[in-house]
Design a protein around this nucleic acid. Structure first.
Lengths: 344, 344
DNA sequence: CACCAAAATTATCGCGCGTAAATTTTTGAT
DNA sequence: ATCAAAAATTTACGCGCGATAATTTTGGTG
């Protein structure tokens, strides 16, 4: 355990009595050397303090072992949870994940993509911001340079594949359940949603309502940005005070809006739930990590976090193994799982 | 706008008609070259698509422009919010932040520190896990190799400085307020807290109660890990059903426990708040991003997110400028700000 | 016009490692 | 002991850039 600091692989080679090219092979793949020499190397690593210089390594490798993970807003617990899952799986697969978030700002997303390009990652898992179509080209260019899998939010034709949740499945299940057990819901959303999935959910709601022969009612909360709870609460207060709800059942576009909605109901003394003594029912989409701790606990269409993150990483590994290109672009949609709690 | 891809600085030099050493100077500091040549370079950058290879750059620089940020559990909205603030400030200061989280696992934290060492960052902002004292040496060794500022959770004597919230200030304010306006609180915490700040808060509570001549009551919820809401809810259900609360006022160690506590109260039909018709009062610490959307909204001692992140980054920049060593280790404690809402 | 400091250029080395080709050693079977 | 295959070694080059020293050019001054 002398733990002498060695400055480069050359020094470690002389110290350990093993040639530098063999060491290089070992660090790239420990199984590529004979078990006996591997043991000698690992014994030497116990004695001497040496790690390859990652910058020199990555400069000379055509492909690094880095994997980029980009989510639109990391301080949103939904994305934090997805990112955590993905990161863990990448580590298990022997890659070095790097986490990035533009926190809702398109110009920061552009900067992240530029940095990512310079990092020459083996692959990137990108959950893009909802973007003006004029920005499509930026992501298109990025995907040309870096092997990329899109997740969470699809952009038609971009990336080597898409993995995400099936918004139609989410809304169909909640609408169906609410309709069967009482009023069909009106739909509560942001007028200017930060995330393109919101539009897909609204469209799915309208389609589903028409399918079952009912009139869709869409209610919108004003406000931009990522403070969904606040926007939901203010919007709900306004609607509830004006008595503007067309039904006694509300389906929120996502759980964060619903958290705000429930908070507004509480403030106004309205009892939410499916009981006979309740004033209205509130359901939502996502199964946000806190959905089970709202008052009342939130009935919601749950993301399959495990499946989405697993499928996304599997697709990424497949992409990396096949050299950065997939035969054809696939879109994998994971259905929701309806979670019944007290709110509806 | 030909945007031809150039493979290295040499090619960009011939293409732009500027010598490579001058370009190198420019990329290290745009102001180090004559304004006229700077303009020529930037004009060339518009025409040609070139970025220095970050791995080659970092290999040859003694010090990189990287900054490491490590938080114990990034999927905890408190840490996500702090990390977001810090990241933003580092970017403004011209550094490249890299975000890491061991998600509560000590062995992952060790791996992160190893990777960080290899990254040769200009500095690191580290919010350590609560650790067994036997692991202290690992962080001690790390701080010897890498200029490090500790934040959020202090480890006596480690790092070049510490910046965090003043736990005593948090608890003193809440206890004081609760005591003046009604019952003094009992204290609700985890029996095996994941974060060392919890211990400091408990001690501060006990000290404060004794100071004002009252008997402290500490109630503990069983459970380990980072699912604080669940632990808080189960613990609260158990206590409430057993009617084991010594007072009608509860101070939770942190907001996530309080979220679970409030959820339990709701389930049991207990009305929480400071009104005459309420069954009990619940207050807490942190001002978690969702504290204002609980039912009822949570009275809590708020972190000064802005100040903590600003001071931490300022300290880091000072550390970097002074070459990785500060004259003496300082501990900056930011006081809490009491936020009165409906729950107490 | 000459003068001089500042800035840019040329030339050259070093960083730490990947990688290839040619050679030598080791291995496990006959 | 023999021998071919596998593995390790020696030698050498290249990656893209930082950094230095010696030289030339630039731009403002008297």
């Amino acid at each position: 355990m002398s733990h002498i600091k060695l400055r480069n692989m050359e020094e470690f080679a002389t110290a350990s009595g093993i040639s530098r090219p063999t060491l290089s092979k070992y660090f790239n793949d420990p199984d590529s050397v004979r078990p006996s020499t591997r043991a000698r190397i690992e014994a030497a690593l116990e004695t001497y303090d040496y790690r390859p210089n990652i910058y020199a390594v990555n400069q000379n490798r055509k492909l690094t072992k880095n994997v980029g993970i980009v989510v639109p807003f990391l301080a949103d617990p939904f994305f934090a949870e997805i990112a955590r899952n993905i990161e863990e799986r990448c580590l298990e697969a022997g890659f070095q994940p790097s986490l990035f978030s533009p926190y809702g700002k398109p110009e920061v997303e552009n900067a992240i993509l530029d940095n990512l390009r310079a990092m020459k990652p083996a692959g990137v898992l990108l959950a893009p911001l909802g973007r003006r179509s004029s920005d499509r080209k930026i992501i298109e260019d990025f995907c040309r340079d870096v092997p990329t899998i899109l997740f969470d939010s699809n952009i038609e034709g971009l990336g080597e594949a898409f993995v995400g949740s099936d918004n139609a499945s989410f809304v169909a299940q909640t609408v169906d359940y609410l309709h069967r057990t009482g009023d069909a819901p009106c739909f509560f959303e942001m007028a200017q949603p930060a995330n393109p999935n919101a539009v897909r959910r609204r469209d799915a709601y309208v389609a589903k309502m028409i399918e079952i022969g009912l009139t869709p009612h869409v209610l919108q909360a004003e406000g931009t940005g990522w403070a969904f709870e606040e926007i939901g609460k203010r919007g709900a207060l306004k609607l509830l005070r004006a008595n503007a709800l067309p039904t006694r059942t509300v389906l929120c576009s996502n759980d964060r809006l619903a958290i705000g909605f429930l908070s507004a109901c509480y403030d106004l003394g309205l009892k939410v739930g499916h009981g006979a003594d309740c004033d209205l029912r509130v359901a939502s989409n996502d199964d946000h990590p806190y959905a089970r701790y709202t008052c009342p606990a939130l009935t919601t269409a749950a993301h399959d976090y495990e499946a989405v993150s697993r499928l996304a990483v599997e697709m990424l590994l497949k992409l990396i193994l096949s050299g950065g290109m997939l035969e054809k672009r696939t879109e994998t949609l994971v259905p929701a799982r309806l979670v019944l709690r007290q709110s509806a």
